[in-house]
Simulated assay, not measured.
Amino acid sequence: MRRALCCSALSLLSGLLLVPLASAKTPPPWPADLLPLVKALQKAGYQVRFEKPPIQGAYGATNARKKIIWVDPITIDLGIGRQTLIHEAVHGAQGCPAGKLQTIGWKNEMVKSVDREVAGILYRNYSHAKFDVEREAFAMQGHPKAFELISAALKQRCR
C-alpha cells in the first residue's frame, strides 16, 4: 500500500511537472510595443539583444562597429524599457554608416529641469568627447515621434 501510494504520488508529481512544460509557450523576448523599433534596427543590420549588457551597471549598450545593441530585461520591470531602447537605437543610427558614433543633427529641446539633469548625468558618467552623441540620445528618449524619427534615420544612414 505504502509503495503504491509512493508511486502514485511520484506519478502525479511528474505529471504536474510535465504539464507546464508542455503547455507553456515561450513569451516573445520583446514587449509588443517595442517591436517596431527592434525590427527597424534589425533591418538596419543590428543584432538587438534583450539581455544584460556587457558593461557593468549599464541598462543598455551599443557596439556600433559590430552592430550589436543590448537592453537589459530589468528595464521593463523598472518602467524604462522604452527609453532605454530609444537611447540605444539613437546610438545605432549615429553609428551608421562608419561604425563610429556621430551626431545626427536633431535639434530636440528639453525642458530646462530635464536638461540640467541630463547635464549632470553627462558630467558624472561620460567623457566630454561623448557629450554631443549622448545628449542627442537622451533628448530623443522623451520625443513623441522617437520611433518614426529613429527608423527614418536608420533607413537613411544604415544602407
Rank of each mutant, 00 (worst) to 15 (best):
V90W: 03
L78E: 14
A64N: 11
D72A: 13
A93M: 05
A64P: 01
K67R: 15
D72H: 14
T75V: 14
G99K: 01
T75K: 09
I86Q: 03
E88V: 06
L101W: 02
E88D: 01
G95E: 03
H87Y: 04
H87K: 05
Q94F: 07
D77P: 00
P73W: 04
I69F: 00
T103A: 15
V71E: 10
G92L: 05
I69S: 01
I104S: 05
Q83W: 11
I80C: 13
G81N: 08
T75Q: 10
R65P: 03
I80Y: 09
E88S: 02
T84P: 14
G92F: 11
P73C: 04
A89D: 06
T84K: 13
I104N: 04
A64W: 05
P97N: 03
W70C: 00
Q94Y: 08
A93Y: 01
E88N: 01
L101M: 08
G81P: 03
K67E: 02
G95M: 06
R82L: 07
G99P: 07
V71K: 02
A89F: 11
A93R: 04
T84G: 11
A93H: 01
I69W: 00
H87E: 04
I86C: 12
A64H: 08
G95D: 05
W70N: 01
V90M: 10
Q102L: 05
T75R: 12
D72I: 00
L101E: 05
P73V: 11
A98S: 09
G79K: 14
K100N: 13
Q83P: 04
C96V: 01
K66Q: 10
E88F: 04
A93G: 01
V71I: 12
K67P: 02
V90G: 07
L78Y: 15
D72M: 02
W70Q: 02
L78R: 15
K66Y: 12
T103D: 08
A98Q: 09
I80M: 12
I76V: 15
A64Q: 10
R65Y: 06
V71Q: 08
Q83G: 06
I69G: 00
K100P: 00
D77L: 12
K67G: 03
G99H: 03
T84E: 10
Q102V: 00
R82T: 07
P73K: 09
I68K: 07
I80W: 13
N63V: 10
L101F: 10
H91L: 06
K100W: 10
G81W: 07
Q102P: 00
T75A: 06
I74H: 08
A93P: 02
G79R: 13
I86E: 02
L78K: 15
K66E: 14
I69A: 00
K100T: 15
E88Y: 05
V71M: 12
L101H: 13
P73E: 02
G95Y: 04
Q102G: 05
G81E: 12
I74P: 00
W70T: 00
R82N: 13
G99E: 01
H87Q: 00
G79S: 14
C96P: 08
D77F: 09
I68R: 09
G95N: 06
T103R: 15
L78A: 13
A89T: 00
V71L: 14
R82F: 11
